[in-house]
C-alpha cells in the first residue's frame, strides 16, 4: 500500500485520515437525510448535510495525495499537508461556532440556548481534528508561514 519511501509517513497518514473522514462524512450524510440511531447519537453526528460533504471532501483530498505519492509523484504530499491545514481550519470554524453558542447560553442567557451544553455543538469535524493536529505537530516545519510575506495595507 505504501510505495513512496521518501514520504512514507505522510502516505500512511493519508491512508488513515482519508478513509476515516470519508466514512464519517457518509454517516453524517445519512443522518442529514433522516437516518437516526443510538450509535450515531453517541458519535455526536449532526443533521448537517453540507458539513458531511466537507468531511468527504477532506477525506478525498487526503486519499488523492496518497494516490499521487504511491505513483511516485512527490508533489502529491501537498494534498496531505494542505488537507491537514484545511481540516484544522474547519476545527477552528466549528470551535468558533461553539463559542458563540456558549456566549448565548452562559453570558446572554438567551432563551433559545437555555439547555445548551457544549456537546450540542460537538461533531466529527471537531473530534476527527485530533488526527490532523497530530500531523500538524509532526510536520509543523512544513507549515511555517515565515516563507510567506505578510499582506500589506
Amino acid at each position: 500500500m505504501i510505495t513512496n519511501k521518501e514520504y512514507k509517513y505522510e502516505t500512511a497518514f493519508g491512508l488513515i485520515a482519508g478513509p476515516l473522514y470519508i466514512i464519517f462524512g457518509f454517516i453524517q450524510l445519512a443522518v442529514g437525510l433522516g437516518y437516526s440511531s443510538g450509535w450515531t447519537d453517541a458519535l455526536y453526528i449532526p443533521k448537517d448535510i453540507i458539513g458531511s460533504l466537507i468531511l468527504v471532501l477532506l477525506g478525498a483530498i487526503f486519499l488523492y495525495g496518497v494516490k499521487e505519492l504511491n505513483e511516485g509523484t512527490n508533489e502529491g504530499v501537498s494534498f496531505v499537508y494542505v488537507g491537514i491545514f484545511l481540516a484544522l481550519l474547519w476545527v477552528v470554524v466549528y470551535l468558533l461556532v461553539m463559542s458563540a453558542s456558549a456566549l448565548e447560553a452562559y453570558m446572554l442567557k438567551s432563551e433559545d440556548f437555555e439547555e445548551w451544553v457544549p456537546a450540542d455543538d460537538m461533531k466529527p469535524g471537531i473530534y476527527l481534528g485530533i488526527l490532523p493536529l497530530i500531523g500538524f505537530l509532526a510536520w509543523r516545519s512544513k507549515f511555517s508561514f515565515r516563507r510567506l510575506s505578510k499582506a500589506g495595507v
Binding site: I61, E75, Y81, G83, S144, R147, L148
Partner: peptide, 12 residues
C-alpha cells in the same frame, strides 16, 4: 523545491 504557495496552489 516546491514553495508553500506552490503546495497550496496544487490543491486549491
Amino acid at each position: 523545491k516546491m514553495t508553500a504557495s506552490d503546495m497550496i496552489d496544487r490543491v486549491f
